[in-house]
């Protein structure tokens, strides 16, 4: 006995099967699964739109994000200024678009760099083992025993605030997660038969490790990059919101939101913070959708 809705669904499939309309599908299974995941496609589209508007900001708005116009302060949205103007008369839309460039650069850049570092170290030490592995593992544990924001703020207070410093700090705090994932994959993959075969052919360690084993861990690595990108964008926004991230004169999504610390702005000038907050959320959401889609698509144990 099966529920009525399932019964209907089954009947439909059965009818199509009987008619011979269903055939075994061909093509890249991962890609097909990704495209079948509606949320991942939505994420991909959203991601592309936001990335496109940020990269091609000058084509979309002619306004200068840095230009102060004291005669045009705190204007609500209008045809001229779609997202209104801020307290010094700067165009909020232009700031959001140009700010997106920096925020995405910080997020994606730190995500990719920490992935590269983490994977290079993790793959090698995981494959080789020995004292190098022990040291790397302990160091990563050291970094990971701090709550991330505390460590970031600690480093900010020591090395000071700048765009490059922030990215360095993000990479420093972010490589550990990737390292551990890559190491764990390596530990299980190095026991596979094909690796022993390669060893018996006398291939060198880096070749086996990076050329033959690493590609097998590509799926989880991609997923991890998306997740850490999302985390870094959130972290940048939070830090800049506190005024401790990217220096205030550079427009970033977090810096734009900084004004909302004032109750007056929060209550009266919604256009100065609400749209940019929504865009951060949408962007991070799209990245998370993509990450989830990638995870499902590359995980062979999942059947969809």
């Amino acid at each position: 006995m099966v529920s009525r809705s399932l019964n209907k669904k089954f009947d439909k499939i059965l009818a199509r099967e009987e008619a011979g309309n269903l055939t075994s599908k061909t093509g890249n299974r991962s890609l097909r699964k990704m495209m079948n995941n509606r949320l991942a496609v939505v994420g991909l589209i959203l991601f592309s739109i936001i990335l496109f508007t940020a990269v091609f900001a000058p084509l979309i708005t002619s306004a200068d994000p840095m230009k102060i116009n004291l005669r045009n302060m705190s204007q609500p949205p209008s045809w001229e200024h779609w997202f209104g103007t801020d307290k010094t008369g700067r165009d909020v839309l232009a700031r959001v678009l140009y700010g997106g460039r920096v925020s995405i650069l910080v997020g994606l850049g730190s995500g990719i760099i920490s992935a590269i570092i983490g994977v290079l170290i993790g793959a090698y030490t995981g494959y080789k083992g020995g004292w190098l592995d022990v040291i790397a593992l302990r160091v990563s544990e050291l970094f990971m025993s701090f709550p991330q924001i505390i460590l970031v703020l600690l480093l900010v207070s020591i090395i000071g605030q700048s765009l490059i410093n922030l990215m360095i700090i993000f990479v420093l705090t972010g490589w550990g997660g990737m390292y551990r994932m890559a190491r764990a994959r390596m530990l299980s993959l190095r026991e596979e038969e094909y690796v022993q075969a390669l060893q018996s052919f006398g291939l060198s360690t880096p070749v086996i490790c990076y050329k033959h084993i690493l590609p097998n861990a590509l799926g989880p690595i991609m997923v991890n990059i998306t997740l850490s990108t999302a985390a870094f964008i959130l972290a940048e926004a939070g830090l800049s919101f506190l005024g401790l991230g990217v220096p205030a004169h550079i427009p970033t999504w977090g810096n734009i939101l900084n004004v909302a610390q004032e109750i007056r702005v929060l209550q009266n000038y919604w256009w100065m913070w609400l749209p940019v907050g929504a865009i951060i959320s949408l962007f991070v959401l799209s990245v998370n959708f993509i990450g989830d889609g990638l995870r499902d698509a590359t995980d062979p144990s999942q059947q969809g």
């Binding site: 926004a237 939070g238 929060l266 209550q267 919604w270 907050g277 959320s281 991070v284 959401l285 998370n288």
Partner: peptide, 27 residues
């Protein structure tokens, strides 16, 4: 719930806090 869960991990906490502040405290 899946979509809501995704939203939950995507919205910056402080932004969510600001919106909550605006709605429940200020308005």
């Amino acid at each position: 719930l899946t979509v809501v869960g995704m939203l939950g991990v995507s919205i910056p906490e402080f932004f969510f806090g600001l919106v909550a502040l605006l709605i429940f405290a200020l308005n």
